[in-house]
Amino acid sequence: MNRFDINVPLVKLLVAKDWQLFEKQLALYVAGGIVALCLLGMAQRWSFYVGSLVLIIVLVSTACFAISNSLIVERKERTLAFVMSLPVTPMDFHVAKLIGNLVTFGVPFLIIAGGAIAVVLLTPLPDGLVVYGLLIFGYIFLAYCVSLSIATVVESEGWNTFAMISSMVLINPFMMVLGQIPSIADNISRDAVVWTTPAVAILAVQVVVGIGVLAYTTIAHCRKPTFY
């Protein structure tokens, strides 16, 4: 059997399993995201700050929830041994976890990100926020990809918690850095979506590095003949 061969029916089954395990909690996160978007949509100064804060908290919580429950808790509660006994290779398991995570995180993420852009474009909020907002969403995506890769490779719960918290907490300095880049900061309050070279470059780096980290982890898993 080639190490790149994937047992598609079992991968689908494992993805569906993870979705069933987490769907209720993820629905709550989406609900929290909708509340945040409503606050943003009120287009008041106070509601904008509260809504932004709630939105970031919801996204960070969704990312941490998806990673910790599908990988870290599975190890801690020893349900991983049950999954490993199924007719899957480490590669099947990794692909299932990758897809399962991207679905469980991606669905709320895309709903909230899409909703946020719609709210900005359809309310009196300045349209220039779209670029700034997408860069923040891009950062959360990158931090999520890095944390997911670390959780896949490293078994230590402590290191995983450290990786998740530190990568997500760094969103604050990242936002400050964005505020220091004139070609981005100056366009936030404009009523037009302006994509400048630095903004496009940062977003491209976030997406490419995020996908690259996940691809590297996948390739590393291809080398594993068995789980242990």
């Binding site: 059997m1 047992n7 049950f82 006994s85 199924l86 099947d92």
Partner: peptide, 20 residues
């Protein structure tokens, strides 16, 4: 381990540290 999936389809494994 080359044919682990084919073998796993025909075997059952339960261990003391396995949880549902």
């Amino acid at each position: 381990p080359r044919e682990q999936v084919a073998a796993k389809r025909q075997l059952g494994f339960a261990s003391e540290d396995m949880r549902l």
